[in-house]
Amino acid sequence: MKKSDFNYHLPDHLIAQKPLPDRSASRLLCMDRDTGRIDDRQFTDFIDWIDERDLLVFNDTKVIPARLFGRKQTGGKVEILIERILDAHNAIAHVRASKAPKAGAVIELDHGHCCIVLGRENDLFQLEFADANLFALLEQIGHMPLPPYITRADDESDLTRYQTVFAREAGAVAAPTAGLHFDQAMMDRINAKGVRTAFVTLHVGSGTFQPVRVEDLSEHLMHKEFFSVASGTVEAVRQARERGGRVIAIGTTAVRALESASKSGCLEPGFGDTDLFITPGYQFRSVDAMLTNFHLPESTLLMLVSAFAGYESVMNAYRHAIDQSYRFFSYGDAMFLGTLRNTH
């Protein structure tokens, strides 16, 4: 398939610029993976589609305040978006400036901090933050890295709302957005119903928003992201299979983590970098159903969803969502894809 196969027109007013007042107040488009049948629901109805046989797998990554604003020593403005923290004083980052800084350049930051450009590789710069622990510095002066299609500046509410309630492993520069719909009340309802949960970690990189620049998908170079799947999660998946339940991935990032750990043909504990690019024709090994948000046109995430639930069915569901004025992207509504069995 070609990149252009995954294009669609989205009116700007359907791009959610802010979260709803309540996390679980979103709408939920449910699509049967087998038939393509669509039901329009509320997110709180998600509990009706799962039962005690199922396993929900969440991504527990935590978004870091990865956007920094600074100045060159010549006075020019600089915007830094941390892509990956290498250690307490070094990171790889995107740097936006009127003219790209060269190796040895010093970038002055707020509160008297600074960083030094060590070098560059393609679009990314290696930066050294010698005067402070990087995690502490970001907590002090960093901004939440809202996606480029959110056109407003971040505010204090984004510190909590662009973060899942179960976030614990710091390292992401974008939220695993399907998880944003879950509040503690929903987590309690899931537990009360006897539905098991497990966690993986995938540190979402800013590459998740990078456009596919080639028409031939086989030529696309996928960005790398760190993932980890623990032995406890592998065992939880095995037990779900034994009791006839479904493995339901909460978000495309949980899908990528599980499928990256299944490259041998079966799910195994593991960690490292993954550049798994899932397109139609891919054979899923560890995921039976998926909760996800609506994704950008021609994006790798839309391609993954189409691989999972069928290209024609997914594109039809997107047309339906636009016709019904669903809210799109990170702060938007949700979509449940799987064999639908109402357990209410």
Rank of each mutant, 00 (worst) to 15 (best):
101 P>D: 12
85 I>T: 14
123 D>P: 03
111 H>I: 02
114 C>L: 12
102 K>E: 09
97 A>Y: 02
85 I>M: 15
121 E>A: 13
112 G>C: 07
134 L>V: 02
123 D>S: 14
134 L>S: 02
132 A>N: 10
90 N>S: 08
140 Q>R: 15
115 C>Y: 05
100 A>D: 08
131 D>Y: 01
146 L>V: 04
97 A>T: 10
117 V>L: 05
126 Q>R: 14
90 N>L: 06
96 R>N: 12
145 P>N: 05
98 S>W: 06
123 D>Q: 13
92 I>R: 11
126 Q>A: 11
131 D>T: 03
149 Y>N: 03
119 G>F: 08
97 A>E: 07
99 K>S: 10
124 L>F: 14
119 G>C: 09
118 L>I: 10
100 A>N: 14
124 L>A: 07
123 D>M: 10
126 Q>K: 14
95 V>C: 04
91 A>M: 13
107 I>S: 06
115 C>D: 08
93 A>E: 13
123 D>I: 10
117 V>Y: 03
120 R>G: 03
140 Q>I: 06
93 A>P: 13
99 K>Q: 10
93 A>Y: 12
147 P>R: 03
110 D>F: 04
116 I>P: 00
93 A>G: 15
105 A>G: 03
104 G>Q: 08
112 G>T: 05
94 H>E: 05
102 K>P: 08
102 K>G: 09
90 N>V: 02
138 L>F: 02
134 L>W: 00
133 N>M: 09
90 N>F: 06
108 E>S: 15
112 G>I: 01
114 C>T: 04
147 P>K: 05
109 L>G: 00
121 E>K: 15
93 A>H: 13
146 L>D: 05
105 A>K: 07
119 G>A: 12
110 D>A: 15
132 A>M: 11
147 P>M: 07
108 E>W: 08
104 G>M: 06
100 A>E: 10
139 E>Q: 14
107 I>H: 06
119 G>T: 06
118 L>C: 15
113 H>G: 07
111 H>M: 08
130 A>T: 07
83 E>V: 01
96 R>F: 08
101 P>R: 11
106 V>R: 13
149 Y>D: 04
127 L>E: 09
100 A>Y: 06
145 P>H: 04
125 F>C: 07
136 A>Q: 14
116 I>A: 02
124 L>N: 03
83 E>Y: 01
98 S>F: 09
119 G>W: 11
89 H>T: 13
141 I>G: 00
147 P>T: 04
94 H>T: 05
133 N>E: 14
141 I>M: 01
109 L>E: 00
149 Y>T: 01
145 P>G: 04
102 K>R: 15
87 D>S: 01
138 L>G: 00
102 K>I: 11
150 I>Y: 03
108 E>M: 14
92 I>P: 02
121 E>V: 11
105 A>F: 02
127 L>R: 09
101 P>W: 13
84 R>D: 06
115 C>P: 06
87 D>I: 00
